[in-house]
């Protein structure tokens, strides 16, 4: 590392007035190893926030703790207060099933179920009982696929396997599957890293449209992508949240020397 760096406090503006999710003093441990060090961060309602940082900085870990996907890892332990509209999501009494219906997730590698396109999208509504009649379900599937910009490409083969689509289509199918349960927040973990530039552009367009009424947190390795899609950017370094600011400010006038070093490509 360059110098002795003191991670005192996050610079910039981590806290907001109208937060959808607000995290206070979040520590995440893998067994004895601490992966996230006392992070305070607010995610604004219907905003896109980009989480950037070098590999292993903890941005994915942080993202996955926002809908308790880390629960599946036995050795993972999350401390602190993580609130979704004022409700602690790590409250032992909280049911994780409705939480994940409200906070959906899209993964790095497209992971459609080995089922038909229709069944992929209909799965969420089915398990949550969102549609009582077949026609309602059809409508949800259609509107979800439309929102994901996939409807025109697949409307004639809804019952073809979802895994037969191209990588970019598969990722949009996964997004359609996520929005079919009308989540309030979508967490995206490097959703475009396995896609070509054209597919990436489509997904980015989609993010912009979805953010009109959905809050989105996106982890990305591409600073251009962060700059293109997000309103705020959070820079993580070695498990510390170094800087949070409006995206424009982060990329044009970073406050912290580490942020500057990262976005100018000196490491990462």
């Amino acid at each position: 590392m360059t110098n002795e760096i003191v991670y005192d406090a996050t610079v910039g503006r981590p806290l907001l007035d109208d937060a959808k999710m607000s995290m206070r003093g979040v520590n995440v441990f893998y067994a004895d190893k601490q992966a996230i060090h006392s992070v305070d961060l607010d995610i604004g309602k219907n905003q896109v926030i980009a989480l950037i940082g070098p590999s292993g900085c903890g941005k994915s870990t942080f993202l996955r703790s926002l809908n308790r996907m880390n629960d599946t890892i036995d050795i993972c332990r999350v401390e602190g207060h993580l609130m979704l509209e004022g409700q602690d999501i790590y409250d032992p009494k909280l049911d994780v099933v409705p939480l994940r219906a409200r906070v959906g997730m899209v993964f790095q590698k497209p992971n459609p179920f080995p089922k038909s396109i229709y069944d992929n999208v209909a799965y969420g509504p089915r398990i949550h009982g969102l549609a009582s009649r077949r026609i309602d379900l059809d409508e949800i599937v259609e509107s979800s696929l439309q929102k994901a910009g996939l409807w025109n490409e697949v409307k004639d083969r809804l019952h073809a396997p979802g895994t037969g689509l191209s990588g970019g289509q598969q990722q949009r199918l996964c997004i359609a599957r996520t929005i079919a349960v009308s989540p309030e927040v979508i967490l995206m973990d490097e959703p475009c890293s396995a896609l070509d530039p054209i597919a990436t552009a489509k997904v980015e367009e989609l993010i912009a449209e979805l953010s009109q009424n959905i809050t989105i947190a996106i982890v990305t390795h591409s600073m251009q992508q962060a700059a293109r899609v997000s309103e705020r950017t959070a820079y993580f370094h070695m498990g510390h949240l170094v800087e949070v600011n409006d995206t424009e400010k982060v990329f044009t006038n970073p406050e912290h020397p580490l942020t500057e070093a990262y976005i100018t490509g000196r490491f990462g």
Partner: peptide, 17 residues
């Protein structure tokens, strides 16, 4: 593949589902 499990969990499938 764990990705299938994660996909199902992330849309709110219960463990049994």
């Amino acid at each position: 593949p764990p990705s299938i499990r994660e996909a199902a969990m992330s849309i709110g499938a219960s463990k049994m589902q």
